[in-house]
């Protein structure tokens, strides 16, 4: 198992600006509300699209057109099919609930045909593939906390098994009323209700320049917390960020936000390192490391 390089990382979250400068550094403008996504993306293909899909498409758009830290640097052309890996737990929940409500009030005939794709849990990933012509493996994963590491693991597997020449890794949770209720039920104190999408572009380390991300490690650990440690040799104490205070404890999307911020931090200076960890439940912790260059021998 080898790692890969992160060639672009973007957090897309309409709403108030973030307090953390590291988080603000991975946002791109313009940021528009999901209902206004057509002003960023054009109208084609957006009719009937749910909130999560619109947010994810905006994040992918920025990640593909404006690599982090290097607005003038364009991504190299991949030399094979592009994979899409999405983590989203509640992206389709509102559509599912809406359809059931409409059926109970009348019949299936009352449901808009535009809703049909929206009840399938892989609608975000397939819509990204259709929009960008990405014919590589198309995966969606939906686990709970720590699921961002599952998504990263899947993306790295697709690259190392040569199923794809690039992986577009996306996390998204919409702030619709169903998702808000579900997150509240999970007793996540202090979770802000805001739309969050994140996109990282991963290329094989021998193909592209970028921040190297190591394979995911999983270990038993007590009281694991999802977080990010940013290390620079000139600063004695590393900065420790727990961005759930800013973006919410939005399952795999939170892990990928940590990963995106870490990648941008390492991208800013060759002697920076970032450590990302996540709680996977049942006493398991997942982690990875981001460095400016690959190890001399892949570990």
């Amino acid at each position: 198992m080898t790692g890969a390089v992160v060639t672009s990382s973007v957090v897309y979250s309409p709403g108030p600006e973030f307090d953390e400068p590291q988080l603000a550094a991975v946002t791109r403008t313009p940021v528009v509300a999901p209902e206004q996504a057509h002003t960023l993306l054009g109208r084609k293909g957006l009719l009937g699209k749910d909130r999560a899909t619109r947010l994810a498409l905006c994040a992918v758009h920025h990640a593909l057109t404006s690599p982090s830290g290097h607005p003038d640097r364009s991504l190299p052309e991949p030399d094979g099919p592009v994979a899409v890996v999405v983590t989203s737990r509640y992206g389709v929940a509102k559509s599912v609930c809406d359809v059931v409500t409409e059926v109970r009030a009348g019949s299936a005939r009352d449901v808009s045909p535009l809703q049909i794709p929206n009840v399938s849990s892989n609608v975000v990933a397939s819509t990204i593939a259709i929009r960008h012509g990405m014919t590589g493996p198309n995966l969606t994963t939906c686990g709970g906390v720590g699921n961002g590491f599952d998504a990263l693991r899947l993306a790295l597997l697709l690259l190392s098994s040569r199923r794809a020449a690039r992986a577009v890794l996306v996390g998204v949770e919409p702030a619709d009323e169903v998702t808000r209720r579900l997150l509240t039920m999970e007793a996540r104190p202090g979770t802000p209700a805001r739309d969050v999408a994140v996109c990282l572009v991963l290329d094989p380390a021998d193909r592209s320049q970028g921040t190297y991300v190591y394979p995911v490690e999983r270990k038993r650990a007590t009281a694991a917390l999802a977080g990010l440690r940013l290390v620079a040799p000139v600063v004695a104490e590393p900065a420790v960020l727990r961005l759930e205070r800013s973006v919410g404890r939005v399952h795999g999307t939170l892990d990928l936000v940590h990963l995106a911020v870490g990648a941008a931090w390492v991208d800013a200076s060759a002697d920076h390192t970032a450590y990302v960890s996540g709680d996977c439940g049942n006493g398991w912790r997942a982690s990875t490391v981001l460095t400016a260059s690959p190890p001399e021998r892949p570990r």
Partner: peptide
Amino acid sequence: PEVLNLVNACAASGHALAVGQDI
């Protein structure tokens, strides 16, 4: 150590098989 949930519509367990073999 890991339980991956793949939500890939009507081809989900076919994708699980591919990922399982790769792992």
